[in-house]
Design a protein around this nucleic acid. Structure first.
Lengths: 335, 335
DNA sequence: CTGAAAGCGCTTACAG
DNA sequence: CTGAAAGCGCTTACAG
């Protein structure tokens, strides 16, 4: 293994000077710099990141703390993850995956000093992991929000997204619009913040339409989607359109609706929000979606975290709405 | 920050002894050990992984080298990734994500000394990244195989999978079975090994049936699936069943077939191999799938790599077939 | 069974 | 502009 000492010897300088040119932390005479760069090139030297981390007490590793994505991966979540990995890499950082469930284990990981900062996914309204992060002193950025809006976060702008979805449906004369969200294992009142925000945005957006609010909450599975279809059918027969914020249930809903003898979009229009265009296309009929800015948000989350670590003044709050991508699941309301 | 020195002082021993009990590397008197453990507990000490890495020249970090998963994530690939992350964590290792495309950048990363070993995804028949790994001396495990079967790998047993799929169709009296695989950007003759293996398994399996071989290669997208449907329709009208090894195209194929006026499974049976049950369920009709053992393989890949790093004698070759999960897309052949 | 000490390969005040 | 040296927090022969 070639070390900084080898480079220093070859260039006839001290290792300190080598370090200075490598990091650009101090002015070095051009001739000296040239000698050092030549030596680095000739020896094909690459600085040891572990030694650097120990000496500088900065590992340049970021952790992505996520729930168990093993069993039921979700297209949008993955785009977050990959966006974050790319964003980190571009800033010279590495991203480690931490599939951590209990926050006890999390404290242990944080205390190990492996990571400079943490990205936290699937944030709940009240999230004990956030408390752990706060008390650990490790910098972090949330992907999602708690009830405390002051913490640094990056999130989908659900309010705008839902308003745009309602607006789109309204332009097709829909007045009775239902909402389907996702049930989680979290204790009631402590769901992911997104669910709460989506509901209140929905209630606000449909109020002017005069229709009866219809909120249905199901699991993010095909079965959940079918359940939503039948609940819709029996409890809210007046609804002519539905907005879905439940990627996993979207296919099941479309199938379930048709199984009940209703056609899409003639008898029921569907918009699936916070999902991907590709995902919507797979379904029959191709769903009109509000595509989540997930790759971008993942990247921005990593960026915001690195900014924070490097003292770059940056806005700790990023909010981006989904983008409407018309498919074939929205049509005029039948009155 | 509480260090090993603090623990040593509190327990009235040297830091070496603390290290011995922490690592279990040397016999320590029970009384001494108890004092040390108490001190660790009281101080809530957690050993610094970076210092440990530098001193032991083992970082306990694994890298997962994968292609760009940002744009078009695939349910199965993600299960690999998450399986590997879990597997690593269970063995006390961390997994970093390396979205690396050119192998130049890869060499740089390898030389930095950050990782003890590498997991390589999307392996090609001839893969320059494997050469880089070999010459870097960093231990690795492939997820997939090159033409050289001697390297340590973990892979889906495509031969068995395809044979079982053909057998299943045969039990429904199908004799003319087509195959749809995935087109990649890789140079011809250097596709992912899976494509080659799937094709030859297919040819071997259908030979006894006497039907004309029908291999269609399309992109892993909805458009690709529709293209496959029309190619099938015009070029291989005799086919009564199709085996798909192209998750991204499966929804498009099902749609495309119906758009051409053929019903599934009455007029065409479909099996989608190397995908997930959940994914198949989303499609109309719910596809009969050969579910990939992806979470398991990801975990086993991490396990095999850790075994290798820790000198545990282990089989470097793991091959697991997909599991048949009947859906509604396979029916009797119409003759 | 335990300890003193060298060493892992860097960074970073501090001096000059 | 450059260098000598301490130090980051561990592990690990080596002695005793």
């Amino acid at each position: 293994m070639v070390t900084m000492r080898d480079v220093a010897e070859r260039a006839n300088v001290s290792i300190a000077t080598v370090s200075f040119v490598l990091n650009g932390t101090k002015r070095v005479a051009p001739a000296t710099r040239a000698r050092i760069e030549a030596a680095i090139e000739e020896l094909n030297y690459r600085r040891n990141v572990v030694a650097r981390a120990l000496a500088s007490s900065r590992t340049r590793i970021l952790a992505l703390l996520h729930p168990d994505l093993e069993s039921r991966p979700n297209a949008t979540v993955i785009q977050f993850v990959m966006g974050a990995a790319h964003g980190a890499r571009e800033r010279g950082y590495d991203l480690v995956l931490w599939p951590v469930n209990d926050d006890e284990q999390m404290s242990h990981l944080l205390a190990g000093g492996l990571v400079d900062g943490v990205l936290l996914m699937e944030v709940q309204i009240r999230d004990s992991r956030v408390e752990r992060l706060l008390s650990s002193g490790v910098p972090f950025v949330l992907i999602g929000r708690t009830e405390n809006d002051d913490l640094p976060y990056v999130d989908i702008d659900f309010a705008t997204t839902i308003h745009q979805a309602v607006e789109h449906l309204r332009s097709y004369s829909h007045r009775n619009i239902a909402l389907v969200t996702q049930r989680t294992k979290a204790s009631p009142g402590n769901e992911p913040g997104r669910i709460m925000r989506v509901e209140s945005a929905y209630l606000g957006a449909i109020a002017p339409l005069g229709g009866r609010p219809a909120v249905i909450t199901v699991e993010g599975t095909s079965a959940g989607g079918r359940e939503a279809a039948s609940t819709l059918h029996t409890d809210f027969p007046e609804a002519t359109a539905v907005i879905l914020v439940n990627e996993g249930a979207s296919a099941g809903l479309a199938k379930g609706v048709r199984a009940l003898g209703r056609t899409v979009p003639e008898e029921l229009s569907i918009i699936s929000a916070a999902t991907t265009h590709e995902f919507g296309e797979m379904i029959e009929p191709a769903l009109t979606v509000m595509a989540a800015p997930a790759p971008e948000l993942g990247r921005l989350a990593a960026d915001a975290l690195v900014d924070q670590l490097e003292g770059v003044p940056a806005s700790p709050h990023v909010l981006i709405p989904c983008t409407l991508v018309p498919g074939q699941s929205v049509g005029p309301a039948h009155l």
